[in-house]
């Protein structure tokens, strides 16, 4: 079987398209690369959506934590503490155990039945956990950035008579984003790495549709050789990481475009965050 044929059969296997049964014999390098690559789509799906939703929530939580009002600040602090203070591994497990307790027949609300059983599926349940998790980490980064906005910027805004919402949206928020961006890039990288935990703790794979690590374990289980599939996963992740760095680097350049070249913040990959 040619490699192109293999890609056609298994390229979208993780989405439930193509061959129904996974390969049982041979396990050529082509098959291994195709299957694991197909699994990468889940990692990208989880990473991209969690980052998008998490970004929005993180802004709100960071502002709540910076707020003077106890009623806003305390819940934000607890939210951040719980999600940053415990291993993602355990969060996944607990979330799955909690989500399967939801009634199977749906919840009755005002005569309407809301279907909830899909929440325990990885595509939804794990996404929710990753979304909340990254929101907590990002909120902490944004909160730190909010507090390190140069005093002069705010005083200048006051002098120009810019205040309230317009001060926030035109001065504080862009500056916060600019200051937080390098750390946020790290968060994005490690979030993608964290997506490998989805099918590893708690969430089961349906119809053998899983992420890159799931297929790698399948191949190890069949070939009894851990030295090929796992390095293939590593290879894909290095590519993914490079792509993330490029993309975030481009945004970073845009955020810093008004500054003289020697004051621009460069992205340094530092281990601010991992789970």
């Amino acid at each position: 079987m040619s490699c192109l044929q293999t890609i056609a059969d298994y390229g979208l296997r993780s989405m439930g398209m193509g061959e129904r049964l996974l390969p049982k014999t041979d396990f050529t390098l082509c098959q291994q690369f195709t299957l694991i690559g197909s699994g990468m789509m889940w990692n990208i799906y989880f990473g991209v959506l969690a980052l998008l939703f998490g970004f929005v929530l993180a802004n709100a939580v960071a502002m709540a934590k910076a707020s003077n009002q106890m009623i806003l600040r305390k819940p934000a602090e607890w939210f951040i503490f719980i999600f940053r203070g415990s291993p993602l591994f355990i969060q996944f497990f607990l979330a799955y155990e909690a989500l399967v307790l939801l009634p199977r027949n749906g919840i009755e609300l005002f005569g309407l039945t809301a279907e909830v059983s899909w929440l325990s599926r990885a595509w939804a349940g794990a996404l929710i956990v990753l979304f909340l998790n990254t929101a907590a980490y990002t909120a902490e980064i944004f909160y730190g950035a909010l507090r390190s906005i140069p005093k002069g910027d705010l005083e200048a805004a006051d002098a120009y008579g810019i205040s309230g919402w317009s001060r926030f949206i035109r001065i504080q928020w862009p500056t916060m984003l600019r200051l937080a961006w390098p750390a946020y890039t790290n968060e994005a990288i490690f979030l993608f790495h964290a997506t490998t935990l989805v099918f590893f703790s708690g969430f089961p794979a349906f119809r053998q549709e899983g992420d890159a690590l799931y297929y790698a374990s399948y191949l190890v289980d069949k070939t009894f050789n851990p030295f090929i599939p796992y390095p293939i996963v590593a290879f894909y992740f290095i590519l993914l990481t490079l792509a993330v760095i490029r993309l975030f680097g481009a945004v970073n350049r845009r955020l810093n475009r008004h500054l003289p070249s020697n004051e621009r913040s460069k992205i340094k990959v530092r281990p601010q965050i991992i789970r």
């Binding site: 590893f200 030295f227 796992y230 996963v233 590593a234 990481t241 990959v269």
Partner: peptide
């Protein structure tokens, strides 16, 4: 190396190696 590869993948084959 660490920024490219998820630690879990590393753990899975490195110990045997």
């Amino acid at each position: 190396m660490v920024r490219g590869v998820p630690d879990i993948v590393f753990f899975l084959f490195f110990v045997i190696a």
